[in-house]
Structures are given as C-alpha cells and as structure tokens.
Computed example of a mutant assay.
Amino acid sequence: MAQHIGQDGRRPANDGPKAAARNRAALIAAAREVFAEHGLEAPLSAIARRAGVGQGVLYRHFPDRSTAVAAVLEENVRQIEQAADDQDATFDTVLGVLTWHLAQSAAFIGLLHTDRTGNRPGIRAHALALSERVERALRTHLPHNHRLNTQDNLALSIAMVSAAATGPTHEEREHRALAAWQLLGVEVGPVQAFGTRATDP
C-alpha cells in the first residue's frame, strides 16, 4: 500500500504496535544511507527525516547514536552471515556480498577499522564482536589452499580493502574495493546484496 508524503517530505508514521517493526526497518535503512553520505557523526534528526518518522519514534527505537550505529552494523553482518549460510555459497560469492556492503555503508567500513570509533567504547566493543563474525562467515568457505588462508591474511586483506573503499559515491567505492582485491590477487563474485540474483545480459 502506497504511503502519502507530507509537505515536510515525511511519510506519516502509523501508530500502533504493528507499525513498530516497519518503523524500525525504515530507520535502519535510513541510517545506513545517512551514515554512508555523511559519516557516523551525521545528525540523528536526518535519519528520522529520511525514514519519514518523528523524533519521538526515532528515540523509542534508538535512544542514542550508539544504538543506531549498532543496528546498521548488525544488519550488515547478518546479511553476510546469511550469504555464508546459503547452500550455493562460495568464498567468492560471500566476498562479493561483503564488497557490496563496503561500497554501500560508511558505517560498515568503520566497523572493520574499530579504531575509527574513537572514544565510544560501547560502539568499539560491539564493532569488534561483529568484525569477528564477518571473518568467521568468510572462513566457512575459505579453501584450504587459498592465498588468504593463513592466520592473519584474511583479516588484514579485509582491512586493506575496506581502507581503499573510499569516495563520494558507492560506484567509486566499489571500483576502488575491486581494484584493491585485484591487486591482492583475490577473485570476487558478483558485487550485490544477499538475495539479489544476477540477470542475464
């Protein structure tokens, strides 16, 4: 069902318990976009506006910046884990999903460089745990003879590629990430969100 956009650019939020999950999903999607465009210090009010909800709804779901960042990071990691759990998954395809998230989300890049979380110990501890989950998901499909299959090569390579994935647009970030993987001699599957099916040309 289509939602009407108000003069202030917001979609009116429905009250009631059934709207809670929808509002939360909209806020996470909006937070991912806003953080990608403006970094982790973007104003929370911009997230509420992008999601089409009021400030009160935002703070009911995310009382502070740390909880909003954590929700975005959790969704990124959850999708990578889902990709790894897919019966048809290979290391290359899971790496493609990871690369998609690197190109789409500045917050996710921050996760892979936990020192960037600065003086936010709550975010830092959560980011470290999520970063370890990303590495575990990738290792489930890492061939024994792969060049990254040593104790530190996988984590170091991810950190190097994520550091290279910079730029004002997701297209530029994707291009730079893929170039970095190529320099490392690592093949990457289709760069796409989990669940996206490549179409025939």
Rank of each mutant, 00 (worst) to 15 (best):
M1H: 12
M1T: 10
A2D: 08
A2K: 10
A2R: 12
Q3R: 15
Q3W: 11
Q3L: 12
I5D: 00
I5P: 01
Q7G: 13
Q7P: 12
R11I: 03
R11W: 02
P12G: 11
A13M: 02
N14I: 00
G16P: 05
G16A: 02
G16T: 00
A26C: 01
I28L: 05
A29V: 01
A31G: 11
A36G: 05
H38P: 00
G39M: 11
L40D: 09
L40W: 08
L40C: 11
E41H: 15
L44G: 10
A48S: 15
R49G: 01
R50N: 04
G52Y: 00
V53H: 05
G54H: 04
G56M: 02
V57S: 13
V57W: 03
L58R: 08
Y59I: 09
R60E: 12
R60K: 10
P63V: 09
D64C: 09
D64R: 10
V69A: 09
V69F: 09
A70R: 13
A71H: 02
A71D: 04
E74I: 04
E75C: 03
V77A: 05
I80V: 15
Q82F: 03
Q82K: 12
D85Q: 13
A89C: 00
D92L: 08
D92P: 00
L95Y: 03
G96Y: 03
L98P: 06
T99C: 02
A103C: 00
S105G: 05
A106D: 15
A106F: 09
I109Q: 12
L111Y: 01
L112Y: 09
T117L: 15
T117A: 15
G118I: 02
G118V: 06
P121S: 09
G122S: 05
G122D: 14
I123N: 07
R124F: 04
R124S: 13
H126W: 06
E135L: 14
E135Y: 12
A137Q: 07
L138W: 00
R139F: 04
T140I: 01
T140L: 13
H141Q: 06
H144W: 07
N145A: 13
N145H: 11
H146R: 08
H146F: 03
N149H: 15
T150P: 04
D152V: 13
A155H: 08
L156Y: 03
S157Y: 01
A159I: 03
A159F: 00
M160L: 15
A164G: 07
A165Y: 06
T166N: 08
G167F: 06
G167D: 05
G167Q: 02
T169C: 07
H170I: 01
E171G: 08
E171F: 11
H175W: 07
H175R: 15
A177S: 14
W181G: 06
W181T: 05
L184C: 06
G185V: 05
G185P: 11
V186P: 01
V188K: 05
V188Y: 07
V188I: 11
P190Q: 04
P190W: 02
P190A: 08
V191Q: 07
V191K: 05
V191F: 04
F194V: 08
G195M: 07
T196I: 12
T196S: 10
T196L: 08
T199W: 07
T199K: 08
T199E: 15
